[in-house]
């Protein structure tokens, strides 16, 4: 296993023009600040999970990494370089979408979905080569008998089977990094584990850098090597999944973990604390964006935004509670 950073985001920011909302005079509507100043590294052979509640900007980060949206600010580096040629970039970075019922064109057969990236990226030229590689891809995602699945239309497949086709399509380009945007949230609970295991196996076999985006911190802990926690468009904690889940630093991570059901700790006491609502991304709270919901907020939290503090070599959090300056003062 190499420790090579294959895909990195440096201070990427994404603002969307709001289609609704109050205009100030004749000026532009204020933008939705979907992602603010996020930096992350994806390492070959490691699975990184990005966790956060709905609307916190996880999918936007995924789509920027897959070059579906251009970032408003910041850079995305592939093996340390900015790549301008989008086809070369896409050959290396592929994405699996959340909803397998929407991500496959209803008009095209499975064979077509897998053959296109093979031809596009020049991995197969003749018809025989294409057929052979399509069969191999279906084999790798365990859709057998291969001949039977090759000629099916998406509506003839179940959700899990469709998601396997989508994964095979992403692999067809032979990428070095794979972005999986909530790959199992639309699937039945009973087949989620199978799809996750498949992703894990493929990532290890291919030495892929896998970014697993989820709102389910429990599955992130089970599945990923590292965890990034996002809140309201910003990263607030990152570290090895074991550490982040066993010894969370940021109050929001603690909140997330307490919300996840834990079969080992059956707690009779009903949790009645009101944890509030996620903030508006059009006018986010001042200072630390989490301060209105934070149970341990300090006076400084509402005025100054916290910087990342290292708790250990590989465990960082953005919270005033751990900032030596604040603690000393």
């Amino acid at each position: 296993m190499t420790d090579e950073v294959v895909l990195a985001a440096e201070n990427v920011t994404k603002h969307f023009a709001a289609s609704r909302g109050r205009r100030f005079g004749l000026g532009k509507r204020p933008p939705v600040r979907a992602v603010e100043d996020v930096s992350l590294n994806l390492t070959a052979g490691r699975i990184t999970a990005m966790v956060g509640e709905s609307g916190c900007g996880k999918s936007t980060v995924a789509r920027m990494l897959a070059r579906i949206y251009p970032p408003t600010k910041g850079r995305i580096l592939l093996r340390g370089k900015e790549v301008t040629d989008s086809r070369a970039y896409r050959r290396n970075v592929q994405m699996v979408f959340q909803d397998p019922f929407a991500s496959l064109n209803p008009f095209h057969k499975v064979h077509y979905h897998l053959a296109r990236p093979l031809k596009l990226h020049g991995h197969a030229r003749t018809k025989a080569e294409v057929d052979e590689q399509v069969a191999a891809l279906l084999e790798r995602v365990s859709l057998t008998p291969v001949e039977q699945f090759m000629h099916k239309l998406p509506h003839e497949l179940s959700g899990g089977q469709r998601q396997r086709v989508a994964i095979a399509r992403a692999l067809a380009a032979q990428p070095v990094a794979l972005i999986a945007d909530e790959p199992v949230s639309m699937l039945d609970v009973s087949i989620r584990l199978g799809v996750l295991r498949l992703l894990e196996k493929l990532a290890r076999e291919e030495n892929l850098a896998l970014l697993y985006i989820t709102h389910d911190i429990a599955s992130a802990r089970y599945f990923a090597d590292d965890i990034l926690v996002m809140y309201a468009g910003q990263l607030i904690e990152q570290g090895p999944s074991q550490r982040v889940t066993d010894d969370p630093a940021h109050p929001y991570t603690k909140l997330l973990l307490s919300a996840a059901p834990d079969p080992d700790q059956v707690d009779d006491e009903e949790d009645t604390t009101d944890h509030g609502e996620p903030p508006s991304l059009i006018s986010p709270p001042s200072g630390c964006r989490f301060h209105p919901r934070c149970p341990v907020a300090l006076p400084t939290c509402s005025t100054t935004a916290p910087l990342f503090t290292a708790l250990a070599d590989d465990h960082h959090t953005a919270c005033h509670l751990y900032d030596p300056a604040t603690v000393a003062g």
């Binding site: 579906i68 991500s103 008009f107 296109r116 990226h121 399509r169």
Partner: peptide, 25 residues
Amino acid sequence: RDYVQAAKASGERAWRIIFAEILPV
């Protein structure tokens, strides 16, 4: 739609997306 975005993300050219992904639907 996601499948158009997916075609884009897999590197398809615009004319191919228009005539092979959108037109048949």
